[in-house]
Nucleic acid binder design. Structure first.
Lengths: 225, 225, 225, 225
DNA sequence: CATGAATGAGGGTTCATTCAT
DNA sequence: GATGAATGAACCCTCATTCAT
């Protein structure tokens, strides 16, 4: 194999990209270092210049993903011009994870991502993100209390709980989406669930009816064609 | 090793028992067929008389567990003498999985059970149970509507969603319980979460304030000593 | 590869034999499990039915070798018909390790055995043997004291020390033997050393001049042709 | 890493120092070039400017150590003012290797040094030293013969043999010292061995009783507190 | 002289599964 | 039904060494 030299961070990113793609597609346990090596196109030993172990690679992948997700959220949460409801809706709707996980990703990969062999990574990503996203969302909720659109006694706790709820909803949605071929009735079910879900969040926060559109019904309807 | 002959179903149950214990304690991937064999006290080849593969064993374990959980629920749901609220509270509170998962199980095992290496099995158990428990709970909700204690437009969907919500709560609770040693403040957080959680369910169902005690605050308070 | 079934102990012995030969010839570190497998003619996984690890195999090899050496010694030491001097001479002269290590073994293997890459195993064999041989020899020395042919204050300690001395001498001798091609003068040196060595042991034990022939001069002279 | 230029020999010495320390502490095989590089604070490729291979480095380390040991001995042996017995006692007692190996070195390092994984290097050092030290000691023995305090027929051979004997004794002593924690009775054993050992050497050389104190009983007694 | 990314053969080990007995 | 020796692909990882810069 001809030797191709690259800068440290460039190669490291190649590893992260390859790993992320394969972990998504086949699951962490099911992805061999060999497969990653092959995708990056380097020799066996090269891996260990960049990561101490396979597990360290997983950590890095997770950290990168949740880091990116949080960065987006942070930008929204810190925007001084938006009101709390707009922020909340956008934090989730525009969340890279949402779009990325559901719309843009090709179906076979999506199918793999939510395969049960993959749950572990997904869960760790969720938890890792929640830890940072929780306080961020909590701040939005507090803003909402000041703006008198939210009414809740537990703004801090709700930040994290809301994010977890979102993550679970996302998984449920993915599940249903992937089952549509077999169960056409899922189409209607999904739209019903969107309503229930948004409604639930409103009750959660004591927000005005119809204000929360964490999951965008319109976008979904379009997607369901 | 002396050859011990047993009835087909007896031996099969021994396999299921051993597998369940080990899967709980160490996770599915981390449990080798060898370990199961050793626990059952039987030779290598014997395994394949009972299960086609390791994966088939997992399926059987999951099926058995969710079958048991559902049987308990069914008995409660079908009881003609209870009102809906009592049924709902008891379905979850007395749910074998709940007690089993949190109170009776020794800490190290609980720690293992909720380790992220184990999530896959837990998730599959939850999904498997939810599929059957959903309609059961839906029936209770409908009874509640007839009794005018619940007020919701989506009784069918809520059955399943409620169960999933419960499962997520259970995981979150386990997480917090296991972290108490390191973070004493979790003690207070857990009790706060119980309130939030019960409150959430009430809003979910449009139930009277204070009626829902899916998670029993008193029991938890005692447990937290 | 066609499957060949053997009895547990037979196969285990095949492993021990192959390992011993290869460890001797190339050293422990330099011998790959693969090489052993190839020599035994079985598949990779088979190894781990018999030994928990490569290190466990080394332990077993060492134990077997020193076990055999000691068994021979024990037979001599326990012989009620021999006097102490005869026993002492025979314990070492007839010691399997001695003959095996120096006379019968083909030169290239002998060369390898005493290669410095191999010292570790040799040393462990020596120590392992010494631990058991020490008390055995001590008993002979005590018999010698009773027979008034040995005169020493430390019969117990001398048992072990004598064995170690012997082992060192054996190594030195091997060294010289292997150097004979390059240094013809070693021939004379070896014979001189035999004398010195036997003399040393006599002084060690306070034995009569000429009584000790731990290393057999005659045999060596013959060998040196 | 900033590039630091050093004089050839200075850097080479840094390599030797690092290697010696690590070889002692972890054994040759167990020490990776990487670890040495890290300790020197220099990049991968640099190593091969100074040593052709890892083995060449070991050779250099051994050569340097035995060179130093011999230099000390030589100074004593060539001292025209000392008598043979004083020289002999001092050659060993003051031998850097002795003090270094037993008294000054911290226990964990000593434990490592005499670990069986390390024997190969130790043995090579001993042999390498013995080759040069032999004739030196032989000269002292001959001086002793002239001074009529030694009485032996083989002064030349005894030089080397004496050194080897010393080396073996040193290893045995190290072994016992390291076992003292577990076996308190070793304390007495060590002192007994010192006596036996010195006595042995006297008989070896035909030296007056009590003249030889190659191992210093007093120093050891103090050390054993 | 020095760097450090890259090599790649090879290491020991695991384990679900097969099959002759 | 049960045994357990045997399989072999695949696993993760190590490390002395090379070489473009």
């Amino acid at each position: 194999m001809p030797r191709v030299l690259k800068e440290y961070n460039e190669r490291k990113n190649e590893f992260l990209n390859a790993a992320q793609e394969l972990f998504y597609a086949k699951g962490y346990e099911q992805t061999s270092i060999n497969a990653i090596l092959e995708m990056v196109g380097v020799a066996k030993g090269t891996f260990y210049h960049y990561f101490k172990s396979k597990e360290a690679l997983l950590d890095a992948v997770i950290e990168r993903i949740s880091g990116r997700a949080v960065a987006e959220m942070k930008a929204i949460a810190d925007n001084p011009e938006m009101d709390a409801i707009a922020k909340l809706n956008q934090v989730f709707q525009s969340s890279g994870s949402w779009k990325a996980a559901h719309m843009a990703i090709p179906i076979p990969i999506r199918r793999a991502l939510y395969n049960h062999k993959n749950i572990m990574m997904l869960r760790r990503m969720t938890l890792s993100t929640a830890r940072i996203a929780g306080p961020l969302i909590a701040k939005i909720i507090q803003q909402g209390k000041r703006e008198r659109v939210f009414d809740t006694e537990f703004p801090e706790d709700l930040g994290e709980l809301l994010y977890m709820q979102f993550a679970n909803w996302r998984e449920k949605l993915a599940d249903l989406l992937l089952g549509i071929d077999k169960h056409p009735e899922y189409r209607a079910k999904i739209l019903r669930y969107v309503d229930i879900y948004n409604d639930t969040i409103e009750r959660f926060l004591g927000a005005p009816k119809g204000s929360i559109m964490i999951s965008d019904r319109k976008a979904l309807e379009n997607f369901l064609e």
